[in-house]
Lab assay of single mutants.
Amino acid sequence: EHKIILYENPNFTGKKMEIIDDDVPSFHAHGYQEKVSSVRVQSGTWVGYQYPGYRGLQYLLEKGDYKDSSDFGAPHPQVQSVRR
């Protein structure tokens, strides 16, 4: 199983989107239009992308907690697509 939770604010606060065993080419299409400032990967390895359609900067997200976007190497809290 692959499970990831994306949070609007640092330290796992604010609006969140939970994804289980699915690739998401556009967070906006899924109704999530917030920034991504923290991430909790509960299982599996994911790649987050700066822009929709798996474009832009890529961020490797392995199991663990990323309490701020800088923890996974993002210069800005901008992640708009993700895949396993």
Score class of each variant (00 low, 15 high):
10 P>L: 09
46 W>K: 01
60 L>S: 09
57 L>I: 13
78 Q>G: 10
19 I>K: 06
27 F>M: 11
16 K>R: 07
30 H>T: 14
36 V>W: 13
5 I>R: 00
3 K>I: 02
31 G>L: 08
9 N>V: 00
15 K>E: 05
20 I>E: 04
42 Q>N: 08
38 S>C: 13
29 A>R: 08
44 G>I: 04
29 A>Y: 13
19 I>V: 15
70 S>A: 08
43 S>F: 05
33 Q>T: 12
34 E>M: 15
68 D>L: 12
71 D>G: 12
46 W>M: 02
70 S>H: 14
25 P>Q: 04
66 Y>F: 05
5 I>N: 00
30 H>G: 09
33 Q>Y: 15
52 P>S: 10
57 L>T: 15
70 S>V: 12
44 G>A: 02
50 Q>K: 00
21 D>S: 02
40 R>Q: 13
61 L>V: 03
29 A>N: 12
21 D>R: 00
28 H>T: 13
66 Y>G: 06
9 N>L: 09
36 V>P: 09
60 L>R: 07
22 D>E: 15
8 E>R: 04
68 D>E: 11
54 Y>H: 00
6 L>R: 01
36 V>F: 08
44 G>M: 00
6 L>P: 02
67 K>W: 08
46 W>F: 04
31 G>A: 07
61 L>P: 01
24 V>C: 15
77 P>W: 08
18 E>N: 04
28 H>C: 14
48 G>N: 06
46 W>D: 11
22 D>Q: 12
67 K>L: 13
49 Y>S: 07
29 A>Q: 12
19 I>H: 01
20 I>T: 05
53 G>L: 15
43 S>P: 00
57 L>P: 12
15 K>Q: 15
2 H>Y: 06
24 V>S: 06
7 Y>E: 03
37 S>T: 12
76 H>F: 08
17 M>C: 13
49 Y>V: 03
74 A>G: 13
8 E>F: 02
64 G>K: 03
61 L>M: 13
34 E>H: 11
39 V>D: 02
38 S>Q: 02
36 V>L: 00
24 V>I: 12
37 S>V: 09
32 Y>W: 10
19 I>F: 00
22 D>K: 11
15 K>M: 05
23 D>S: 03
15 K>P: 05
60 L>F: 07
76 H>D: 12
28 H>M: 14
9 N>W: 09
28 H>K: 09
23 D>T: 01
27 F>A: 03
15 K>N: 13
71 D>E: 11
27 F>D: 04
67 K>E: 11
18 E>K: 03
41 V>K: 02
20 I>V: 10
47 V>K: 03
77 P>E: 14
60 L>Y: 06
27 F>K: 09
7 Y>S: 01
70 S>N: 14
62 E>F: 01
9 N>R: 12
35 K>D: 00
78 Q>D: 14
3 K>F: 04
57 L>S: 12
77 P>A: 08
31 G>I: 15
26 S>H: 11
24 V>F: 03
70 S>K: 14
40 R>G: 03
52 P>F: 00
39 V>M: 11
18 E>A: 00
10 P>I: 07
17 M>L: 11
50 Q>F: 01
60 L>E: 15
42 Q>W: 04
15 K>L: 08
5 I>S: 08
54 Y>N: 03
12 F>L: 10
32 Y>S: 14
70 S>Y: 04
57 L>N: 11
62 E>T: 09
36 V>S: 07
2 H>F: 12
30 H>A: 14
5 I>C: 09
30 H>P: 10
71 D>L: 09
23 D>E: 02
23 D>Q: 00
29 A>M: 13
43 S>L: 08
48 G>S: 08
23 D>C: 00
12 F>A: 11
58 Q>T: 14
70 S>T: 14
64 G>C: 01
10 P>T: 10
48 G>F: 08
25 P>F: 01
68 D>G: 13
3 K>W: 00
5 I>K: 15
61 L>I: 14
39 V>R: 02
24 V>L: 12
84 R>S: 03
64 G>M: 02
46 W>H: 03
26 S>K: 03
79 V>Q: 03
66 Y>L: 06
68 D>P: 11
34 E>V: 12
65 D>Y: 01
49 Y>Q: 01
58 Q>K: 07
43 S>Q: 09
37 S>D: 10
16 K>Q: 14
41 V>E: 03
60 L>W: 03
8 E>Q: 15
67 K>D: 06
35 K>C: 12
9 N>T: 09
63 K>V: 12
55 R>P: 03
44 G>W: 00
26 S>V: 07
74 A>I: 15
25 P>K: 09
38 S>I: 02
53 G>M: 06
12 F>W: 08
44 G>L: 01
5 I>A: 09
35 K>T: 10
43 S>W: 04
45 T>V: 11
54 Y>P: 01
74 A>D: 05
17 M>H: 14
29 A>F: 10
27 F>E: 05
71 D>P: 08
40 R>H: 05
32 Y>F: 12
49 Y>L: 04
69 S>L: 14
9 N>C: 04
66 Y>H: 04
4 I>W: 02
71 D>Q: 14
58 Q>I: 04
34 E>Q: 15
7 Y>F: 10
71 D>Y: 05
23 D>K: 09
8 E>A: 11
15 K>Y: 08
21 D>M: 01
38 S>K: 00
54 Y>K: 08
61 L>F: 13
43 S>R: 09
71 D>A: 13
54 Y>F: 06
38 S>H: 05
70 S>R: 11
27 F>V: 09
48 G>L: 15
2 H>D: 08
34 E>W: 14
59 Y>I: 09
59 Y>R: 03
79 V>Y: 07
47 V>S: 03
22 D>R: 12
67 K>Q: 11
23 D>V: 01
45 T>R: 06
31 G>C: 04
73 G>D: 09
84 R>H: 03
25 P>H: 07
29 A>L: 13
16 K>M: 15
41 V>C: 04
30 H>N: 10
35 K>M: 05
62 E>G: 05
4 I>L: 11
59 Y>D: 03
